[in-house]
Design a protein around this nucleic acid. Structure first.
Length: 650
DNA sequence: CTAGGGTTAG
């Protein structure tokens, strides 16, 4: 703070003198660069152009170029670069790193090809950029080319080359390259899921720098062994290697995955100089541990500390809003993303589509989808599943057809969306067609998720025998999802026998889960088999199974309110219950019909909505002339004028 | 200037 103040004073007096002397100008500019203060640089340049004062000072210009790239001001960097008289290989490399960071492979390749002279770093940067943008094949061919042109690969090069192998799942080539690394006494990395082998190599290495430790730690993380990361973190400290920001970010991630969110919070608070990645990791950690409010607060702290959020931060925070189904928070983020230049970013846009869909606003979601300059399968999936979950089956299927027309390749998730749209609209034949297209047209193997959709598709309209045949023909052992799907279709059909089968299997897999007992008990009650209802109750009592608490979230005037079932803790408790009782009475009278024009009421529930509440909401929507959008653990319910978009199937 | 950390869809 103090240093910046001093710099500003120096700047003021320099500009006041109106001097254009080269030496003080250069000194001042360098200081601005050292302080990472682009604003001061701009201020200085608005008075005097660097070209007119320092036309041949390549060193100074390179430093400035690097600062621009570091701060994400690529346009400024490019402008300066174009004007530079004495470009050296460093200047070119800085531009390569800019394009590499942004994933602009076109400009990256073009710049690389235009370079008059290249060095090892030029190759390393370009290879890393290509590999990072899913152009691993090209990255590898450049890896080969650099050697034919007489450049010796360094550890940087090998890391990228091995990354390329792991991306292409080419273990054979990876091992070959690894052999070369061993031969040239360089250091390896952690790839292709062979984490134990990597550890063996790692232990064999004498001198290990911080990058190596970090690679090993993240290797464990990527291979789903977070507990090992923490061990390694401690070992690293014992070995006297000082952890850096990268280490801490990995370890933070590991803590979340093993559920030690409080431990992570402690480590996070200890870090003095946090960078954007640290903040993002922590925000994501909160979000994944169902602490969305903390995640949101942390994001605001991050902004208050002047740490610049990037596309990863924005997409994470947008997904926090989606989890909360908080449209106002989501819109705030959307508005913040625009001036930061992330509006049309692939990650952010896909998260926005998901957020709007999860708030029941598919029109807004579609607007985001429509303006995206580049879409990948994730963007399409977000939009298709958004439609499917909101009961807009036709839109979902139409969009899928467009995807096929545009020669995009769908993935497993796309087809889950498509099949669930079919089952909701009762299009059995169409669903069957899409199901067989998974293997026949797209050359993929249907997963249990797809089979579950099919059981739903067949079972709902009562084709229970076909659904059971499908379960018997599964290529692998039926999992929890399959049996709970069978239970849910058996419930719709009042098929107690099948429901019993499914519930039995479910309790074998997860004995503590309450859902199956409750569904079965309700089915017995509907059939008047009260002795069975009593049996279910005593069973649940014996096993000490208790129903998970039901939560609801509702957003009123920019604030999210959370309720537990039979909650009496809200500050406006009396008023709420008075209104509830008034509604109950009104509903008993019923019979109104007026246009819908007010803001919808949005409700989020952690469990599946029960039959009574569903009925209640239908009445309330009619009575209050308000659209109610309720998102439960399963899908979306748009209640309008006494009808629900789920068509009473859920 | 180049390697290692965080992100989106069911």
């Amino acid at each position: 703070m103090k240093a910046n103040q001093k710099l500003r004073e120096a700047m003021d007096s320099f500009l006041a003198r109106g001097s254009t002397a080269a030496e003080p100008y250069a000194r001042l500019l360098l200081e601005c660069i050292r302080a990472n203060d682009v604003e001061q640089v701009k201020r200085l340049q608005s008075h005097i152009d660097i070209q007119s004062v320092q036309p041949n000072n390549t060193y100074l210009q390179n430093r400035l170029l690097h600062l621009y790239v570091k701060c994400g001001k690529t346009d400024d960097a490019l402008q300066l670069f174009d004007k530079m008289a004495g470009k050296d290989v460093f200047s070119w490399n800085v531009m390569l790193s800019a394009y590499s960071k942004m994933g602009e492979t076109g400009s990256l390749r073009a710049t690389f090809n235009r370079m008059p002279v290249r060095d090892c770093v030029s190759y390393n940067t370009t290879i890393a950029g290509l590999v990072g943008s899913e152009c691993s094949v090209d990255g590898l061919s450049l890896f080969v080319r650099m050697q034919t042109e007489g450049f010796e690969p360094s550890e940087y090069t090998y890391v990228s080359a091995l990354n390329a192998c792991s991306q292409l799942l080419d273990l054979r080539l990876g091992k070959q390259i690894h052999g070369r690394i061993v031969a040239s006494c360089l250091k390896g990395n952690v790839f292709c899921g062979q984490v134990d082998q990597a550890r063996w190599l790692f232990d064999g290495l004498g001198d290990k720098n911080v990058v190596l430790w970090n690679s090993m730690i993240s290797g464990y993380l990527k291979n789903g062994r977070p507990e090992k990361c923490l061990d390694l973190f401690l070992e690293m400290k014992v070995a006297g290697v000082k952890p850096d920001l990268v280490t801490v970010s990995s370890v933070l991630g590991a803590n979340f995955r093993s559920g030690f969110i409080d431990e992570a919070t402690r480590i996070f608070k200890e870090i003095k100089e946090k960078d954007g990645v640290c903040w993002t990791t922590m925000i994501v950690g909160y979000a994944q541990n169902n602490r969305e409010e903390d995640a949101w607060m942390l994001f605001n702290e991050m902004l208050a500390e002047n740490v610049k959020p990037d596309k990863y931060t924005f997409s994470s925070v947008v997904s926090v809003c989606a989890r909360l189904a908080s449209l106002v928070h989501g819109k705030v983020i959307h508005c913040k993303a625009i001036p930061n230049g992330f509006e049309s970013d692939l990650l952010v846009s896909s998260a926005l589509i998901d957020m709007y869909s999860k708030c029941g606003e598919t029109l807004d979601a579609r607007k985001v989808f429509q303006v995206m300059p580049i879409r990948n399968v994730v963007s399409w999936n977000a939009m298709i599943t958004g439609y499917a979950q909101n009961g807009q089956d036709q839109e979902a299927l139409e969009l899928y057809e467009t995807l096929l027309q545009e020669k995009m390749k769908p993935d497993n998730i796309t087809l889950v969306g498509v099949l669930s749209a079919c089952s909701r609209s009762g299009s059995v034949e169409l669903g069957k067609k899409y199901f067989s297209s998974i293997s026949e047209l797209h050359g993929m193997k249907p997963t249990l998720d797809h089979y579950s959709c099919m059981i739903n598709l067949l079972g709902r309209p009562g084709r229970m025998n076909e659904a059971l045949d499908l379960i018997n023909s599964l290529p692998e052992k039926p999992n929890y999802l399959i049996w709970s799907t069978l239970l849910s279709v058996a419930r719709v059909n009042g098929d107690i026998e099948r429901a019993e089968t499914a519930a039995k299997r479910l309790s074998e897999i997860d004995p503590l889960e309450t859902g199956p007992y409750i569904i079965l008990s309700n089915m017995y009650a509907s059939a008047g088999r009260w002795e069975k209802v009593a049996l279910m109750r005593s069973l649940m009592k014996d096993k000490k199974i208790r129903k998970a608490p039901a939560y609801s979230w509702i957003e009123i005037d920019y604030k999210v309110h959370k309720f537990v079932s039979d909650d009496r803790t809200h500050s406006q408790n009396e008023k709420i219950y008075r209104e509830l009782h008034r509604l109950m009475k009104e509903i008993q009278k019923a019979g109104l019909s007026k246009p819908q024009d007010r803001v919808p009421i949005r409700i989020l529930k952690n469990l599946r909505v029960c039959k009574d509440c569903h009925m209640f909401m239908k009445f309330v929507s009619k009575l209050l002339e308000r659209c109610i959008i309720l998102r439960d653990s399963n899908l979306f319910h748009h209640f309008v004028d006494g009808e629900c978009s789920c068509k009473d199937y859920w």
